[in-house]
Amino acid sequence: MRSSWDRLRHAISFELGGLALISPLGGWAFGLPVADVGVVGVACAIIATVWTYIYNLAFDAALQRVTGGTQKSVSLRVFHAVVFELALLALLMPVIAWYLEVGLLHALGMDVAFAGAYMVYAFLFNWAYDRIFPLPAWHEPSQSGQVAL
């Protein structure tokens, strides 16, 4: 499993990259000042950073218990990203509605658009992160039952 330091590096680098990418795109897509989208983005990033740490810790602990390791297949990565984003959507929608002074339905639409963009971003970021910072204990069983390192 990943250390607390590694999880912190992961969460912060994920959120900083997401803010740099999504804030200008969100301002452009919704016709809002980039500064307003940026403020909402920072608030959402703080919430998301805490959520990222908690979610990934719990997910990896459950995966470790079920499979004996934390190696993720492509389909498991998709599942991981979808569940993460659905829960985050529920956490962030009220923040978006309140700060941007829009109705909950409008905030839901905005949140879904951001979630879709972040889902793609999360999938690509996490895959890259695992390649750049692999765990030395990761291994896959070979077809003969032997552990292949």
Rank of each mutant, 00 (worst) to 15 (best):
L104W: 14
I132W: 15
V83G: 00
H80G: 00
Y55N: 00
D111K: 05
T67W: 06
V39F: 12
F114G: 03
L108E: 05
A29S: 13
V112M: 11
G145Y: 12
W98R: 11
L108D: 05
S144R: 10
L76I: 02
G145N: 09
F125C: 02
H80Q: 05
L21Y: 07
A122M: 07
W98C: 09
F133Q: 02
L21I: 13
F123E: 01
I132D: 00
L63M: 09
P33C: 08
D36K: 15
F123S: 00
Q64F: 05
W51L: 09
A43K: 14
A107D: 03
L105D: 14
E101I: 07
F30G: 06
G41H: 03
G109Q: 12
G41A: 10
G17K: 08
L19G: 14
G31Q: 07
L88S: 03
A58G: 03
G38W: 12
C44T: 15
A45F: 08
R9V: 12
L25S: 12
G116Q: 01
G69P: 01
G18D: 04
H10L: 09
L25M: 10
P94G: 08
A128K: 13
W28T: 12
P136N: 07
L57P: 00
A128D: 00
L16I: 14
P33H: 12
N126E: 13
G18E: 01
R9P: 00
A122L: 10
V66D: 08
I132Q: 02
A58H: 04
Q64G: 02
A90G: 06
L105R: 15
A137H: 09
L63V: 08
S142L: 14
L124Q: 08
A137N: 04
A117L: 09
P134N: 08
R65G: 04
G26Y: 03
A122R: 06
I46D: 08
H106P: 05
A20S: 13
F114I: 05
I12W: 11
L92D: 10
D130C: 05
S75L: 14
C44Y: 05
A58K: 06
S75I: 14
A43P: 02
L21H: 01
T49M: 12
R9I: 13
A113M: 01
L25P: 02
A137V: 13
V95W: 11
E140I: 15
L100C: 03
I96Y: 05
S13D: 06
L57D: 09
E101N: 12
L135A: 10
V82P: 01
F30L: 15
D60Y: 04
W138S: 14
G103H: 06
F59V: 11
R65W: 10
V120F: 04
A45K: 10
G103L: 10
L92V: 15
P134W: 06
G116T: 00
E85C: 05
L135M: 09
M110D: 07
G69I: 00
F79R: 04
T49P: 01
G31N: 10
L63H: 11
Y129W: 15
F84Q: 02
E140T: 15
L89S: 02
A97L: 08
F59M: 06
W51Y: 15
R9L: 15
M93E: 14
A122K: 06
V37K: 02
I22M: 08
V40A: 13
L124W: 05
A61I: 03
P141F: 09
Y53C: 01
A62T: 07
A35L: 13
Y99L: 15
Y118F: 13
R77H: 01
S144P: 02
Y55S: 03
P33K: 14
